[in-house]
Amino acid sequence: MKKKIFVIGIVLFILIAGIGVSFYLFNFYQTAPSTEIITYPFTINEGETVSTIAKNLQSEGFIRNELMFRYIVRKEGLVLQAGEYQLAKNLDVKNLASRLTLGTFDTKITIIEGWRREEIADYLFSNNVLPEITANETDIFSLRLNIINKIKEGYFFPDTYVLPKNTNLSQLIQIVKDSFNSKVESEMISQFQTQGLTVDEAVILASIVEREARTAESRKVVAGILLKRWQNDWPLEADATVQYVIADRDCINKSDCTWWTKEITEDDLNLNSLFNTRKNLELPPEAICNPSLSSLQAVADPTETDYWFYLTGNDGKMYYAETLEEHNENISKFLN
């Protein structure tokens, strides 16, 4: 009896020890193999299997155990991408595997909503995204001009794009145009027409809404106000259009500039330009930036109100008014 209990005890000990060791190894094999922050090149070639990638990672010291890497990839449902990577050895298996899902044969760029074409050019130039930048475009000014000549303001759709390696400017322009066309479909165009707008006019108005309002809700209200003013031959009086004119005056020949200045003087409000809606009744001849889908949707389906005026207070909130008297009160309360 004692011998039987002893044997059972030994078996239980071995089982518990085995479970403990397995648990330890399971966690250990997921940890980073080093604390070293230096990065090393690692390449995944087209057609390589997860098994091959795992073996290469282990042999080069990026992971502790290839089986654990394969398990994590399968468990997380990750799709590894061919590419050239720079990897540190201080990454745990899960983070390392996640990094290998975007092949660096590809380039990821993010175009911010409300940027002018010049700002987009500056971003592309500073991030060395296009092959032209190292070949033909020797300075930021030539790249700005090249973009301006290839696409109208307002149609460089803001989004995150993953570009195949060596995508050139013409190809990028086609990609963003296709993206714009996929978002601005026939239903939205019909909504623009219901508001009495062509697509170009809608894009111009949306670009102003983009710079004047920050949320989807406020954009719909501002779009309704601007449409009503335009349809009733009122000047839009949108400060964003004045900012656009100021930048045309001050920034075009500078490599580093604040494109949307917050300081607008009385002289600025009187600048002679077709873009200055403080002086002109018509819409600007072209968009002032590249608007988001939210702003385009706001123009397509604006909120109808009794408001004719709006402003953004020093607290960042929108304040609306039905009369000039109420608007002036809002200026005194929220801007001074």
Rank of each mutant, 00 (worst) to 15 (best):
residue 181 N to P: 01
residue 256 D to M: 13
residue 99 R to M: 12
residue 198 T to L: 09
residue 201 E to L: 03
residue 104 T to W: 00
residue 176 V to L: 10
residue 193 Q to L: 11
residue 56 N to S: 14
residue 200 D to A: 07
residue 179 S to Y: 10
residue 152 K to V: 10
residue 74 R to S: 10
residue 197 L to A: 07
residue 236 L to E: 09
residue 259 W to C: 00
residue 302 P to A: 06
residue 23 F to P: 00
residue 45 N to Q: 11
residue 294 S to I: 13
residue 96 L to H: 02
residue 287 A to I: 03
residue 177 K to H: 10
residue 196 G to L: 08
residue 278 R to Y: 15
residue 308 W to S: 01
residue 111 I to F: 00
residue 150 K to M: 13
residue 161 Y to T: 03
residue 115 W to P: 01
residue 265 T to Q: 13
residue 304 E to M: 00
residue 123 Y to L: 03
residue 92 D to Y: 05
residue 296 L to P: 11
residue 4 K to R: 14
residue 156 F to C: 06
residue 122 D to K: 12
residue 225 I to K: 13
residue 236 L to C: 06
residue 263 E to N: 15
residue 156 F to H: 08
residue 195 Q to T: 12
residue 166 N to V: 02
residue 301 D to Y: 10
residue 152 K to A: 14
residue 303 T to P: 00
residue 79 V to P: 04
residue 145 L to R: 15
residue 207 S to T: 05
residue 8 I to R: 03
residue 115 W to N: 01
residue 274 L to C: 03
residue 210 E to I: 08
residue 302 P to E: 06
residue 242 V to L: 07
residue 141 F to V: 14
residue 128 N to T: 04
residue 50 V to K: 03
residue 2 K to S: 05
residue 79 V to C: 01
residue 169 L to V: 05
residue 162 V to Y: 11
residue 52 T to I: 10
residue 222 V to C: 13
residue 133 I to P: 13
residue 132 E to N: 09
residue 74 R to Y: 03
residue 308 W to G: 02
residue 265 T to N: 14
residue 286 E to S: 15
residue 264 I to A: 07
residue 6 F to K: 12
residue 47 G to Y: 07
residue 221 V to Y: 09
residue 68 M to S: 14
residue 193 Q to S: 15
residue 210 E to C: 04
residue 290 N to E: 14
residue 22 S to T: 10
residue 327 H to I: 02
residue 277 T to P: 12
residue 143 L to P: 02
residue 165 K to N: 11
residue 248 D to A: 06
residue 195 Q to P: 13
residue 127 N to K: 15
residue 184 V to M: 08
residue 302 P to T: 04
residue 204 I to Y: 04
residue 330 N to Y: 04
residue 38 I to N: 10
residue 1 M to T: 09
residue 307 Y to W: 06
residue 297 Q to A: 05
residue 210 E to K: 02
residue 287 A to F: 07
residue 101 T to N: 04
residue 235 P to K: 15
residue 241 T to C: 06
residue 110 T to L: 05
residue 244 Y to C: 02
residue 139 D to M: 12
residue 288 I to P: 08
residue 64 R to C: 03
residue 33 P to I: 04
residue 39 T to H: 01
residue 302 P to H: 06
residue 15 L to G: 07
residue 152 K to E: 15
residue 114 G to S: 02
residue 36 E to K: 03
residue 303 T to C: 01
residue 273 S to M: 09
residue 274 L to T: 13
residue 78 L to R: 09
residue 84 E to F: 07
residue 148 I to A: 14
residue 53 I to W: 02
residue 220 K to G: 04
residue 175 I to V: 15
residue 177 K to D: 10
residue 307 Y to C: 06
residue 117 R to P: 00
residue 69 F to K: 08
residue 49 T to C: 01
residue 113 E to Q: 10
